[in-house]
Amino acid sequence: MREKTGSVMRAGLQIAGGCSGGQTAAARQGARGFAALVPAARVAYLPGMSKPAPIFNGLRLRCGHCGQGRLFSGYLKLNEACPHCGRDMRAADTADGPAFFVGFGVLILTAPFLFLIPMSPLPGLLKIGAILLLGLAITGLSLWLLPVAKAILLNLQLHHKSGQAEFDRNDA
Rank of each mutant, 00 (worst) to 15 (best):
D168I: 06
G69P: 01
G103C: 04
K77D: 12
M89F: 15
M49I: 02
L158Y: 11
I108D: 03
T110F: 15
I108E: 09
G103S: 04
L122A: 02
F115H: 12
P98R: 07
I152D: 04
A151L: 05
A99T: 11
P147N: 03
M89T: 08
I152C: 09
L109E: 03
N57P: 05
P47Y: 06
L107W: 06
M89Y: 15
R70Y: 05
F113S: 09
G135S: 15
L76Y: 03
L59H: 06
R90A: 13
F56P: 03
F104I: 14
I152P: 06
P39H: 00
G105Y: 00
H65Y: 04
A130D: 00
R90M: 07
A44P: 02
H65E: 11
R169M: 08
K161W: 07
A165Y: 11
V106E: 01
C85R: 00
L154D: 03
R90F: 04
I55R: 14
A99Y: 02
L125W: 15
E80K: 13
F167S: 07
N155G: 06
R42S: 10
L133A: 15
A35W: 07
I117T: 04
I138L: 02
C82G: 02
C63I: 00
L114N: 14
R87H: 11
P121D: 08
L109W: 08
D171P: 07
F56D: 05
L122V: 00
A130Q: 02
R62S: 12
F56Q: 06
C66D: 04
E80V: 04
Q157H: 13
I108H: 11
S142Y: 14
A81G: 05
N170P: 08
G105D: 00
L145M: 14
G33Y: 01
R60H: 13
A53S: 15
A92C: 12
L114Q: 14
E166H: 12
L126W: 12
F101L: 15
N170Y: 10
L143I: 03
F100P: 03
L59W: 08
M49E: 15
I117A: 07
C85V: 00
V38K: 01
G163H: 07
L158Q: 07
L122M: 13
A41Q: 09
N170W: 07
P123Y: 05
N170V: 13
P123L: 02
G97M: 06
L145P: 10
V38D: 00
P123K: 02
G105L: 01
D96K: 02
R70C: 07
T94H: 09
L153F: 11
P147H: 09
V106I: 14
M49L: 10
L132G: 11
N170M: 08
G86R: 01
A81Q: 12
P121N: 05
R70K: 09
A36Q: 04
L71M: 08
A41N: 08
P83V: 02
L116N: 09
K150I: 08
V43M: 10
P83G: 03
I108T: 09
G97S: 08
G124H: 10
